[in-house]
Design a protein around this nucleic acid. Structure first.
Length: 268
DNA sequence: AGGTCGACCTGGCAGC
DNA sequence: TGCTGCCAGGTCGACC
């Protein structure tokens, strides 16, 4: 899926493109992605206006004028695209009364759409750790959070109950920039190393947002365009290539079932 | 309790 | 060409 920078880009795009528009009807092309009964979802959306859009971790929340909330988790291949042609991956069509539409597309159908009456009913976000670009994610929070944790620092950063929104690409990238091996036990980090990880987490996410995210495969923004951050990626998906910093060979290992890319030469 | 591993799906690509 | 196996920005429940 899109990680935090990609979801943030979609949130900002949607805030411009669909805020205030009135929903005329909802077409369910494939109910598989719905975690709310189709009739309930249609009843909540049809006739309502888009009031605002927010993000928590990788989850999007679309607030409606009637107080209901449509939540969207894009998972690996979900897309929210405005005024785009319907194709075979289009699962939900939200038609506006001005003739435009918002499409939910999802090749792999891992994504999930729900409707709530109150946000506190959205179980998922209750378990999320702090936003990495918010004030609660401080250098001391990160350092204290690593104490007594023997798991590798990379899997800790991917754990959204620890910190929200960091996915596989940015976990690899920020550890590369911080010069810390993803294999290191979290508890083994020094204060200086934890500080560097905190600094690079914030820097890489902000830089990715400025560049409208990374498109490795499926990610598209709300206009269907790719993100520009891919060309700024330094280690992810570069197995067996020369490290851009020290020319050592970039390695790929599996951690918690996911590919990790790192440079054994300059990540200690 | 903390941490890892499948399963959930579809499709593109490399190798034979 | 066509098959097989591997891989993919996430998340959760089952298991050790």
């Amino acid at each position: 899926m899109p990680e935090l920078p990609e979801v943030e880009t979609i949130k900002r795009d949607l805030s411009v493109k669909i805020k205030g528009r009135k929903i005329r009807r909802v077409q369910i092309k494939d109910g598989f992605v719905l975690r709310t009964p189709p009739a309930v979802l249609k009843k909540a959306l049809e006739g309502a206006r888009i009031a605002s859009i927010d993000r928590r971790g990788k989850a999007l929340m679309i607030f409606l004028s009637n107080g209901r909330i449509l939540t969207v988790q894009l998972m690996m291949t979900g897309q929210l695209i405005v005024d785009d042609p319907i194709d075979r991956h289009t699962r939900v069509v939200i038609d506006f009364d001005d003739g435009g539409c918002l499409l939910y597309k999802d090749q792999r159908r891992f994504g999930q759409l729900r409707v709530f009456e109150r946000l506190d009913q959205f179980e998922h976000i209750r378990h999320l750790g702090p936003e990495p670009l918010g004030g609660d994610f401080s250098p001391s929070f990160l350092y204290e959070g690593t104490r007594g944790r023997r798991r590798p620092i990379k899997t800790l950063l991917l754990d959204h109950t620890f910190v929200a929104g960091i996915g596989n690409i940015y976990a690899c990238e920020l550890l590369f920039r911080a010069g810390v091996s993803p294999l290191r036990a979290a508890s083994s980090l020094t204060k200086a190393e934890a500080d560097r990880i905190h600094q690079e987490t914030v820097a890489v996410l902000k830089e990715a947002i400025r560049n409208r995210g990374s498109s490795m495969r499926n990610y598209r923004d709300a206009s269907g365009q790719q993100g520009r951050f891919k060309r700024l990626i330094r280690v992810y998906a570069r197995e067996n290539e020369a490290c851009l910093r020290c020319r050592a060979v970039v390695k790929r290992v599996i951690q918690a079932g996911r590919s990790t890319f790192f440079c054994p030469g300059c990540q200690k």
